[in-house]
Amino acid sequence: MATAPDKTRKLRKNSEPMDRDELRDAYANMLLIRRFEEKAGQLYGMGLIAGFCHLYIGQEAVVVGMQHCIGKGDQVITSYRDHGHMLACGMDPKGVMAELTGRASGYSRGKGGSMHMFSKEKGFFGGHGIVGAQVSLGTGLGFANWYRGNDRVALTYFGEGAANQGQVYESFNLANLMKLPVVFIIENNRYAMGTSVERASASRDLSLNGVPWGMPSLSVDGMDVQAVKAAGEEAVAHCRQAKGPFLLEMKTYRYRGHSMSDPAKYRTREEVQRMRAEHDPLDAAKKRLEELGIAEDELKALDNAIKARVQEAAEFAQSSPEPDPSDLFTDVLVES
């Protein structure tokens, strides 16, 4: 098996742990995603959300930790498991939930659904339904930054399943050849639909998949929001200094099925329960917050405020009108 040069394997500096306020923000952002996704699952069960619906529960630390490394003008792009990324980017839960229910007030005016939402204002470039396609697109987002000569960075997320697609490696080659500011983030949740990473990838360490192109990389505990942020800061700094792309492998886990109709027979109930009990990113952050002296009452109040926000989104998503039939024909082409 290939081994990477040592320099690609260790954090260059020991990042400061998040302070109390930052960790509380991160916890709140993760909790918003968790509660939103639980509600989305519930609405799906009630028939209010249809089609494909891929929940992010379990993986919250990845996107929240990375979001703490970037700012306005940077770009984020991901696959179809995208609700968490949208919320982390600051998109309004009401608009996201209304898109899930297929309503006119959704981010794509009801024409995209769970897998296809965008917000240029928040730097979120989708939401893409073809496995791996967003990796080339994200490389192009970074290309535009390079072309303009600014220091912006494109965070390009994909799963360990997509990591077997040919265009991922075409993109690695292009990004390294042209020194494009792209952070490639593999969210390794261990299962590509029902196929475990061991059954799908001959590479036993996905963080080494960029080695042939000389791409620096880190393997990260994706269940620890502070570890994610520390690695993300190094990757983003590398890109901002015009040194080219960076690869992060986030070792994470999804608690729910691939989509809503997944009976999840490819893994044991015990495995899921063990991850939830021993590695939950929210539990870990909550425990740390308590150690930092945040009272349980305050955390409870936070939880209730987030639940109320999600409930408001759910009610908005159910009460908003469906798109007007005339919208069937709009947005096919930009009328010049």
């Binding site: 990796v135 265009q167 292009l174």
Partner: peptide, 20 residues
């Protein structure tokens, strides 16, 4: 570009989405 149609086409589409 290298001979990599799938990759460079996706990259160009991403660049267009980002305003080029």
């Amino acid at each position: 570009t290298p001979i990599t149609e799938h990759g460079f086409t996706g990259m160009a589409v991403g660049a267009a989405m980002n305003g080029l």
